[in-house]
Every structure is written in structure tokens, then in C-alpha cells.
Computed example of a mutant assay.
Amino acid sequence: MLRIEKLTKRFGDNTAVDTATLDVDKPCMIGIIGRSGAGKSTLLRMINRLTDASAGQILFHGREVTTLKGSEKRAWQADCAMIFQQFNLVPRMDVVSNVLHGTLNRHSTLATMFNLFPMEDIHRAIDILDRLGIAEHAPKRAEALSGGQQQRVAIARALMQDPKFILADEPIASLDPMNAQVVMQALRRIHEEDGRTVIANLHTLDTARRYCDRVVGMRDGRIVFDGLPEQLTTGVAREIYGADASFSEAATSTEIETLDANRKALMEAEATI
């Protein structure tokens, strides 16, 4: 279905992504992990064509994606919707209008300027918000919502594109543990219920293991691991992150139970000092 072959991106003398090769032969949820600067975001941006590759190919059902231009490029970008860490909403615009912006590629500039959307699209936007549990916030300004709610609005906007892929670049990095779980559960349901492929850049190992069918590890621009969640052992994680024996998964956990246990252990340790 999707083949990424020796994909490379150079910025001057720096190689951000180095001959990355990845095959996605069926809809699945993939988590990409690695330390900051490993090339995760650049890889997603190349898949979406927000960034042009320096070398290599992206093939979708045998069609070359990296050479698409104009309307064909825009159509491809609609097929692989991007979700960003910072939500990228219009803060002073109401929630439903933000979601409707997912249809901009299908409407004229004039209609977009005056927020003139078909009633069918408005109903669909509200249905998607309802599916994500935030329909009651449709008339509110986006800036009035919590971070987790704003990220769900961003997911709803992506779904308005009716994409084949959802590319999520650190979708929970700026969220508290409770909202992080809500957002990851939403992405997982979208994969399972819609049959869409979701590729998400993640920082935490427990999140990748819990929600993803497949985990890809990147280090210094290269893919150094590609396997099942259960194969992501602590030893493998150390290799991906370039860490020594002091590396602790608990320190990166987003699980509320783990965080509570860590907090309790810290308090007990402080009480003995």
C-alpha cells in the first residue's frame, strides 16, 4: 500500500533522515519513537510533502508521491492529514469552523473567506465532534478549550478531509497524562473503526506499546528498529535512545498509575531523609 524507499533529507551538511525504508502493506497504527532530533518529524513531513525529500521515493499503490506537483500534490496532502503537537487551530474562531477548515481543498477561496460551508459539511463536522466527545463545544472559541479538547478538534479537522492516513506529530507531547490517554484512545478508535492507517511520533514507550500495532525506532536519522510492541524491550529502547544502563522507562511513562506510583515512591524516599 505505502512504500518508503531509502528516503533521505539533508539540510546542508546535516542529514536529518538517512535512507529510511518502510513498508505499510495494510491499515495499522504505527508508533515512531526516538529521542529529539532523531528525524521523526522530518520523516512525517516528507510523507505529507510539507518537506521535499533530498533522495529516495514514496510510493502509494505504486504511484510516485515525491514528484507530485500542484493539484495532485494537494490531493495527496488531503489523503494524509497531519496533526501537530501545537494543534494549529485558529484560536478566536469557533470550534466547528476550525473543523470545517479540513474541507478547504474542496471549496473556493471566496467561500472560505466568508465561512460559507454547505449544510451537509456542517452536520458532518458536528457528527465528528460528537464522535470525539466534544460536540457540546462546537460554538465555543477554540482558545476556550483545554489542550486535550483542542487536540481532539484538530483530529476532527483531519477527519473532515476523509484521509487514507493520519500522520500525528507528537500529538500528546504537550498534554497531561489524562488528556494524553483520551487523545491516544481516539486515534486508536479511528484506526479500528475506520480502517485508517495512523502513524504517530511518540516519546514514551508505554504509549507505543499500548496503542500501536507496530513500533519503529529512529536514531540519528536512521530506522534502527521495526517490530511488534512486545519486541520493544528495555534493552532495545536503550539502543534506540542511545542510553546507558541508567535509562528508566518509568521516567517517560504517561500511564497515570505509573506516575502515581513514582510520585508515592519519591514522597516516601523524601520522608526518610
Rank of each mutant, 00 (worst) to 15 (best):
T67S: 15
E72H: 15
R45I: 06
G221C: 06
K73D: 02
I190L: 12
Q86T: 07
A158P: 05
I122V: 14
F84K: 00
E270Y: 10
E239P: 01
I58S: 02
Q151N: 02
N201E: 09
A142C: 08
I134L: 08
V236A: 07
F87A: 01
A173I: 00
L22H: 03
R92Y: 14
E143S: 13
V95Q: 07
P171F: 04
M119D: 04
I122A: 05
H123F: 10
P171W: 04
F60P: 03
E255D: 12
T272R: 13
T234S: 11
A38S: 15
T272S: 13
G56K: 07
I199D: 04
R74L: 13
P163D: 05
F60A: 13
Q57E: 12
I190C: 12
M218N: 05
I47E: 02
F247T: 08
L259D: 03
D121T: 01
M218L: 15
M113G: 01
L205M: 06
R189W: 10
R92V: 13
L43Q: 00
A154M: 05
A111G: 07
D121I: 01
G56D: 03
L59N: 08
A156W: 09
E143Y: 08
S174H: 05
F84C: 01
T233R: 05
R35A: 15
M218A: 09
F225K: 02
I155D: 00
D25M: 11
L175W: 04
Q150F: 00
T272K: 12
T109I: 13
A158W: 01
G102P: 01
T8K: 08
R74A: 10
G195Y: 10
L110C: 02
I273N: 12
V224M: 04
V236M: 08
L116G: 00
Q77M: 15
M218S: 08
R209L: 05
A243T: 11
K6F: 13
G39P: 11
A245N: 05
A245Y: 09
N88D: 08
A125V: 08
M82T: 02
Q181K: 14
E193W: 11
L132I: 05
V224T: 07
V236S: 04
A20V: 15
S54W: 02
G227Y: 14
S146V: 02
Q86S: 10
